[in-house]
Design a binder for these strands. Structure first.
Length: 102
DNA sequence: AGTCGAGCGCGCA
DNA sequence: TGCGCGCTCGACT
C-alpha cells in the first residue's frame, strides 16, 4: 500500500472540525517520511475530497496549501474556519484540543 | 539559545 | 536518474 493512499485515507478519517499534523500521520503510518506527506498532499489528486487543509505543522502552525503561496493559505484558513477551526497569525487556536489523534 | 544539516518517500524533469 | 519538497529532529556553535 502506497504511502500516499494511506495519507489520503487518514485525511478522510479526520472528523469535521478537527485537524492533524504531518508528523502524527507519519507516525501513525509507521514511517518517518514527514516530507513525503507534504509532497503527497501538495500533489493530491482530490483536494476537494481530501481535506488536506486540515493537515498543519507539528506546532499547529499553518503551512502552504495547494499553490504553496500565501493567498491559498488565506483560503485554507477560511476553509478551516468553515469547519469551526480558528486560525490566528497562521496558527491554530486550541490546536491541541482540535488535534485528531486517530 | 539559535543555526545547520540530514533524512525519510514520492512526484516531476 | 536525480533533485526537490506544505517538515522535523538532532547535533553543533
Amino acid at each position: 500500500m502506497n504511502l500516499n493512499k494511506k495519507v489520503y485515507d487518514l485525511c478522510k478519517k479526520i472528523p469535521k472540525g478537527k485537524l492533524s499534523t504531518y508528523k502524527l500521520i507519519a507516525k501513525k503510518l509507521n514511517t518517518n517520511a514527514y516530507r513525503a506527506i507534504g509532497q503527497i498532499l501538495k500533489h493530491n489528486k482530490d483536494p476537494i475530497k481530501i481535506p488536506c487543509y486540515k493537515i498543519v505543522k507539528n506546532n499547529g502552525e499553518i503551512s502552504g496549501y495547494n499553490g504553496n503561496n500565501r493567498k491559498n493559505i488565506s483560503k485554507k484558513i477560511k476553509l478551516l474556519g468553515k469547519d469551526g477551526i480558528i486560525i490566528k497569525n497562521n496558527k491554530v487556536l486550541n490546536f491541541e484540543k482540535l488535534l485528531y489523534k486517530f
